[in-house]
Simulated scan of single mutants.
Amino acid sequence: MAITLKKSGDSHKIDLSKAGQSKQLTVHVNLNWNQQSNQNVGFFGKLLGADSPPDLDLGCMYETVDGAKGVIQALGGNFGAKNSSPYIFLDKDDRTGAASDGENMFIYRPDTIKRVMFFALIYRGASDFRSVGGRMFFKISNGEEIYLELNNPGVNKPFCAAAIVSNFGSQVTILKEEKYFSGHQEADKNYHFGFNWVAGSK
């Protein structure tokens, strides 16, 4: 049975030392959402594509233990890497929500990361998270499962910092963050990654 993180600030700790193989432990992150389009949009919303099925993107901002930082997301085409640093990989870009398994990201070497902020971005189809039913699911290779819903959305905030995974040596913590922002740059300012942002499309 999955552990549910119900409110912002709830967390779950994973003891890497118990696994006995911390370098092989894998964290699987899944983002899924409702497939139907948003029917409660006005004329200008439809002009912007808000009556089409919502397109959500799973991404992350990360920092490794050796100080490297980066962003993995479909926007810009950076899907990460399985077998080299940062050992974080995004499997695909599901533009309609039609894929039953949504979008998935994997941390293959949690021992090498310092922190990873997983986010959900509404690329098109809705102005915020009130209608999309966003949810995130973590499956750890030791059998542990953690579930959280994006159920306290901000109005006209299409970017959700959903969860933070932090490495504390022999322990990894998964925290339900669920904070909403207008976009990447505002979120980055809050979490102090220090990236330089430019407009992009896919």
Results as ranks from 00 to 15, higher is better:
141 S>K: 09
146 I>S: 10
113 I>N: 05
132 V>D: 09
114 K>R: 12
135 R>Q: 07
115 R>V: 15
121 L>W: 13
125 G>K: 05
116 V>Q: 15
127 S>W: 03
143 G>L: 11
139 K>E: 10
110 P>Q: 12
152 N>D: 08
146 I>H: 07
147 Y>P: 09
150 L>C: 06
119 F>N: 07
123 Y>P: 06
114 K>W: 09
143 G>Q: 13
134 G>H: 14
148 L>K: 11
152 N>H: 04
141 S>F: 09
145 E>T: 08
117 M>E: 06
142 N>E: 14
133 G>T: 12
120 A>Q: 05
125 G>F: 01
147 Y>A: 11
139 K>G: 11
114 K>I: 03
138 F>A: 07
129 F>S: 00
146 I>L: 01
138 F>Q: 07
136 M>G: 10
137 F>G: 02
145 E>S: 09
120 A>L: 10
126 A>G: 06
153 P>W: 02
136 M>P: 10
127 S>P: 08
131 S>G: 00
134 G>Q: 15
127 S>E: 06
153 P>E: 01
109 R>G: 10
150 L>R: 08
143 G>D: 13
133 G>K: 04
150 L>Y: 08
109 R>V: 05
109 R>T: 11
149 E>Y: 10
141 S>Q: 12
143 G>T: 13
126 A>Q: 03
124 R>V: 10
132 V>E: 00
145 E>I: 08
133 G>D: 09
142 N>Q: 12
138 F>C: 04
139 K>R: 15
144 E>N: 09
125 G>L: 03
118 F>S: 05
128 D>V: 08
137 F>M: 08
139 K>N: 15
151 N>R: 01
111 D>P: 00
125 G>D: 00
119 F>Q: 02
127 S>C: 04
130 R>N: 10
137 F>R: 02
151 N>K: 05
122 I>M: 13
129 F>I: 09
134 G>R: 15
150 L>Q: 04
151 N>M: 01
145 E>A: 01
150 L>G: 02
124 R>D: 08
130 R>I: 04
115 R>T: 14
125 G>Y: 03
